[in-house]
Design a protein around this nucleic acid. Structure first.
Lengths: 269, 269
DNA sequence: TTTCCGAGTTCCAAATAGTGAAACTTGGTT
DNA sequence: AACCAAGTTTCACTATTTGGAACTCGGAAA
């Protein structure tokens, strides 16, 4: 059985993508042997896998140093993905504007499996040291954007996703079981927005709002983040009108883009 | 290393990545049948390939509409690739500043095989309709950034790369053979910068400057682009001091980042 | 120098995963 | 009811992948 290895696929493609992830994990050029250590694949197999990736342009081999890093083809694909996601590129100018208004860190996130994927970020005028970064993933059950998105998931999907939450206690305020979280989610549904009350990192708080299509489909979430030393929840809550305006504008524009003249599609269940 | 077929995608991984590219090419969610049309693979094969990609999170299947788009995992990898490339993330704020100063379109590019890869872009205050886009590739022999990068390639690599240029005549000003281009490149080396004199698109002109490390290694190129209806080469040339300042700042920072005099904390010693 | 060592690379028979024509399912249209 | 097109599954056949082991290569130790 698998160790703490996040591998998914039995196929060759799955293995190759595993290796790609592995290379991505190191945030720097990496030697073959470094990859081998902690790889579930035997030397020869790993070797061929890496060769294939290099041949495909997904990985670059630096002959001078004998190191591998992610390739240009990936950058190209990356951009296509970002453009296609239709939320991020449309939201960009709106987030710029909001960020300029409130002067705090703004996050745009989507839900990916059971985790939060930060798809864009603007730093506060006075930046805050924190974990998050565009392109990074984070936990859903203890972040503002995560909880807000969970709150607007369909019941069956919510069940599935909650099953996968780790409920690790990051801080004394982290919600550490499903019941607590479910109560929080119904509060969020009642209010239309949610908070992060230092649940993931001490001193870090935020307000988060879901981005919903006209049909109520969850598109993503947006949050404004700050620190307890600088502000408090009430002050963040006071920003809500501007945040809501931003979110509405984004939702409308996504709507117009995705369904240029199409009737609303029926939803699942 | 026996004789190889020239086709990309000898193995399964290659085919899967082909499909990924294919999906990326459409700038929107795409139906299975659309992919099938113009795919070299038979229906069942393509189907399984796409399924694998979906299973791996590289492609998202939208059940409501029966469409495929690029997946979150790709976005994640993409960001890692962009971050790791070390030029783009460092250059970003500098490009923001330059763009604000000059008010014209700014491109940041790197060389990828024999082509130009635009890794970042800022639009002019008054945007111009044009081909280029971050994440897209373009020809090297008839763009400002392309020629400037060619000019600072090593002799053997330059030979190899020139071999691969198409020398297609896009406009009456396009340089259409190696000799013309080589003369242009030595001019560029003499000046330290180069122009695009409507060589790729009529009416589009630019100044481009190479980004070089302290050791003279080519890191990328930066250009400021405009139109003949708005300005001229002399006016663009007048922007050079600001561009050079920006480029120096980027080069220095990349230098500092790539050799932080700190060993990566790891298992062995 | 010679020997040793470990990173990187190649080999090949056995095992596995991929292939694709064709058949089938689904849902909408005539 | 018959038809059609998109999407999905099947299955005998085959090409690719696998990984233990052997090999190369260059540097460090003997």
């Amino acid at each position: 059985m698998a160790a703490e290895n996040g591998m998914a696929g039995g196929g060759t493609v799955g293995k190759a993508l595993d290796v790609l992830d592995h290379i991505a994990m190191f945030a720097r050029p990496v030697r073959f042997n470094e990859l081998l250590t902690g790889s579930p694949y035997p030397k020869a197999t790993l070797y061929r896998l890496v060769q294939v990736l290099v041949g495909e342009g997904m990985v670059t081999f630096n002959a001078d140093q004998g190191t591998y890093s992610l390739g240009m083809r990936l950058v190209r694909l990356a951009h296509a993905a970002w453009d296609q996601s239709s939320l991020a590129p449309i939201a960009r100018p709106h987030i710029d504007a909001l960020s300029a208004q409130v002067g705090e860190t703004v996050h745009l996130a989507q839900i990916d499996n059971a985790q939060v994927l930060y798809v864009d970020k603007r730093n506060a005028r006075v930046p805050v040291e924190m974990y998050s970064q565009a392109g990074k993933v984070g936990p859903a059950y203890c972040t503002g954007v995560g909880k807000v998105m969970l709150a607007y998931l369909g019941p069956s999907e919510l069940d599935r996703v909650l099953q996968q939450q780790a409920f690790h206690r990051f801080t004394p305020h982290t919600l550490t079981n499903e019941d607590q979280l479910r109560r929080e989610l119904s509060d969020i549904r009642a209010n239309g927005y949610g908070f992060d009350r230092e649940e993931h990192e001490p001193g870090i708080i935020c307000v988060a709002v879901p981005i919903l299509s006209a049909q109520g489909r969850l598109l993503g979430a947006l949050s404004v983040t700050s620190t307890t030393s600088r502000t408090n929840l009430a002050a963040l809550e006071a920003q809500l009108p501007q945040i809501q305006t931003t979110v509405s504008a984004i939702a409308e524009e996504v709507q117009a883009w995705r369904f240029p003249d199409q009737a609303p599609a029926s939803m699942e269940d």
